[in-house]
Design a binder for these strands. Structure first.
Lengths: 132, 132
DNA sequence: TAACTGTATTATCACCACTAGTACACTTTT
DNA sequence: AAAAGTGTACTAGTGGTGATAATACAGTTA
């Protein structure tokens, strides 16, 4: 199963769906034109109410990341990747804010630069969420 | 007034108080031993219910950042800065996650490294929240 | 026709941030 | 001693919202 939600999380289920979909598109796991799992199938496999799924998809459509065709399904939009890249750029300020805090907390310039470089070098290795 | 809250924000008022207090301590605006504005004064100046203020201070005390003396007031703990630095280190993974997303969005290694260096160089210039 | 798709509606529940009001005990100031 | 300020505790109520439940309608596909 592609999607995975954590019911214990404080972040709303519908936001988790949005977040994961965005990540799938950004990483090319979901390509433009690809069909997103249907409302009912997602609802069943995630044990989540259909309304919750629909809420997430509706929001994704408002952002232009997907488009829905009644009777057919919901698909990844062609400009999805571009839109996502732009949005990430918009989050730059927030990331800078966090890095500033980290600097105030005493991290060294060398350590931070090294971290960034390593992130680039390991760009293609998948992120593992487990602890093993 | 030191503190400032945004009632329109989606982030809870008591979390804003916590967040700002942490920032004040981290940046040395509030030093160990300094007294934090009283529950009632904060309540009055921020137009916020005393319970909301107390909720924030109680949580800060649980984290060991402040300590309260009934009848006297609430003060910044001696080890506050150390605790804060440790906590910030703990947030490293989250920051890395965001930087990874940024890389996936197409930011170049040079641009990111340049940004980090500039953050260090401008470390002492105050952050302005206004748009002027 | 049957089984799938998205979409819409209404009602209900639960949690939580927040407010309101009151009260108690302690410390400092006058 | 009195007053004013401090932290702390308790109960009650309100509003927003995330989530569920149960239907229903319309379009598409096998």
């Amino acid at each position: 199963m592609l999607y995975q939600i954590d019911v214990m999380s404080r972040v709303p289920v519908y936001e988790q769906i949005i977040e994961q979909t965005r990540r799938f598109i950004l990483r090319g796991i979901l390509e433009p034109g690809d069909q997103i799992p249907s409302v009912r199938s997602l609802s069943a496999e995630l044990s989540v109410n259909p309304n919750t799924i629909q809420k997430a998809l509706a929001q994704l459509e408002r952002q232009g990341l997907v488009f829905s065709v009644p009777g057919k399904g919901t698909f990844v939009a062609g400009k999805a990747k571009v839109i996502l890249a732009e949005q990430k750029r918009g989050e730059l300020e927030e990331i800078q804010r966090q890095l500033r805090e980290l600097i105030w907390a005493g991290i060294s310039r060398e350590e931070l630069l090294k971290m960034v470089n390593e992130l680039f070098d390991n760009r293609w290795s998948e992120t593992r969420e487990d602890g093993k």
